[in-house]
Design a protein around this nucleic acid. Sequence first.
DNA 1: CTGAAAGCGCTTACAG
DNA 2: CTGAAAGCGCTTACAG
Lengths: 364, 364
Amino acid sequence: MTTPATRALPAADETARPTLAAVAARAGVSASTASLAFSGSGPVADDTRERVLAAARELNYGGPDPRARSLRTGRSGIIAVVIEDRIRDAFSDPMMVALLDGIADELGQAGYSLLLLTDSDDRPVGGLRDASMDAALLLGCSTDLDPAVAVLSQRQVPLIGVEAREREGMHRVDLDNRAGMRTGAEHLHALGHRRVGVITLPMDRAHTRGPLTAEWEAESDAYTGLERLAGVRDVYPDAPAEVAAGSLIDEGHRAALALLQRNPELTAIVAQSDLLALGAIQAADELGLTVPDDLSVLGFDGARIDGLSIHRLTTLVQPIVEKGRAAARMALAALAGEPVADVAFTSELRLGTTTAPPRADSAR
Amino acid sequence: MTTPATRALPAADETARPTLAAVAARAGVSASTASLAFSGSGPVADDTRERVLAAARELNYGGPDPRARSLRTGRSGIIAVVIEDRIRDAFSDPMMVALLDGIADELGQAGYSLLLLTDSDDRPVGGLRDASMDAALLLGCSTDLDPAVAVLSQRQVPLIGVEAREREGMHRVDLDNRAGMRTGAEHLHALGHRRVGVITLPMDRAHTRGPLTAEWEAESDAYTGLERLAGVRDVYPDAPAEVAAGSLIDEGHRAALALLQRNPELTAIVAQSDLLALGAIQAADELGLTVPDDLSVLGFDGARIDGLSIHRLTTLVQPIVEKGRAAARMALAALAGEPVADVAFTSELRLGTTTAPPRADSAR
DNA sequence: CTGAAAGCGCTTACAG
DNA sequence: CTGAAAGCGCTTACAG
């Protein structure tokens, strides 16, 4: 019989989280058996399992502590997703959201969760250097990815880069950015356009705006933007380019105004994203230019954008969700110790209503 | 002297990740000292620290294993963010992105990273039940939050709900949804509107569309939507409501058409979000109704939406980023063992150009 | 300033 | 089907 005094003791420690050992003790089994009862990965008598689960319920045990499990198994169940910008900048791009959706879907099915990390390593603790992760996916980090790659590869974390240039120790999911844009540029050329300008994605980490000079281009490490630019240059070697501060409608608007002011002779604009293209169309409207008659506009992405179905953009459609899925599967393969093959996706020209032959008299 | 044979041996195990113990051994110090050298949290001679770091470099040691650290310290450095929908649905809402931005900023500074989780617990493993986390923030989970709360509170994870109804064991960041909407409705009433309709956020987990019936409303658990509706009903008790499938322009468009078709007498529409309001304005344009002369439109959020500056929406502005920061700080306080006080934010009516007195002759 | 020891809470061979 | 033992890789009192 327990005396009142005994009863008044620690009282099963209501505050501290109960452990598997406590549950096992209460159920009258060993810790190993209790563990098996929870994981379901070993042979346990139904009766025994019931007793363990009942004990867990009584102690209000919430299941094995993932920290301990992960130390023991060597797996955390976490895959890091490294984005370049602040969260708000990254996720204001619907393509990034769609990419993440593909990743999360594939990884979620495999029992993994996503840890959101930023590659700016300006925090004293936490982040790239200290976070638990089984693998890392580097997204949209076209610029200045090296520090993140260095930290993570030193940690021996399997690395998958989505549209990043080749780097040692990193697997890649790529897109035919250059070939796609070349196809788009050829389409414009076939229509008769000879004076074409480009609105590019950011060319540096600071997201500087302005006309792209040769020096700037030479020192830029913005993989996707440079590849897409190269595709246009394959057809229009001297196409002037204006750099936007992000893939945003407002940025496309601003860049188009700047581009057309500097180069009034342009009959077509190639935007490196659909959002930029939509901004360019807005700018054309404001300038009294009819799209496509006065100005053709070509996009890239094939994004589906809420609330905007007015113009059917001529654009390069990329399989964005599939790209995310592929990146996720590569991480999973790497974790399974399987060989990982790099993947390259293809974009496809979709003709819309925003490109047409230039006016015969186009003085512009 | 090492013989060739000796040299050919396991070679410091190139494949296995080196441990702190290995680094300590190489540096000729104890594991404790090596640990101190890395964490910088104890008194270590400069000279000793150098030796440890040098040994780490030689062995290509990437720093202490976060799994082990987290078991030992009881902290994972991870805060979970639980969203209701698929990632794509959640992040297509700019308010959610801004909220997350506030959270990430505050948490990042404190050295925590965000783990993205979905409250649909249909996965066999991973997710709510197994992921490591020090605390969890529940976002936009107005409907059907109970299972997630049950799992997490059983795990004794501190819980912060953003705009969720009161629940045991959960701290809350709230917004004056009802009072805000009442203010907006009073504004419309003062302008002379007597026949006002509402476009609501989703009322169930399935995101069903359609006219909101009394039964549906009674059984709904959509906290934010119901509160905002109540605010309108405080002024217009019989206002008809159309339920949208999400906070999207296209949904506002569809809902407005349905609402106006069923209730052609309406002179104003209250939308429960700015995106819904923009869709309603699009619909009005299509129907040949001028906003605000033929139809006033009121929004909620004060969102800044890329590419859309045509209409200056009359809306209730909420401090969304601050809401995120507050939620993050509450999690931090809970982890520090400090008392956590619930917080309620206030929205403010911002007059734009989308509300005006109804036409004197308004037969509609 | 440094080291020896304990232990965080599990899971996994290994015996029986 | 069940249990005893070892150990995942750290950090943290505690001595010295």
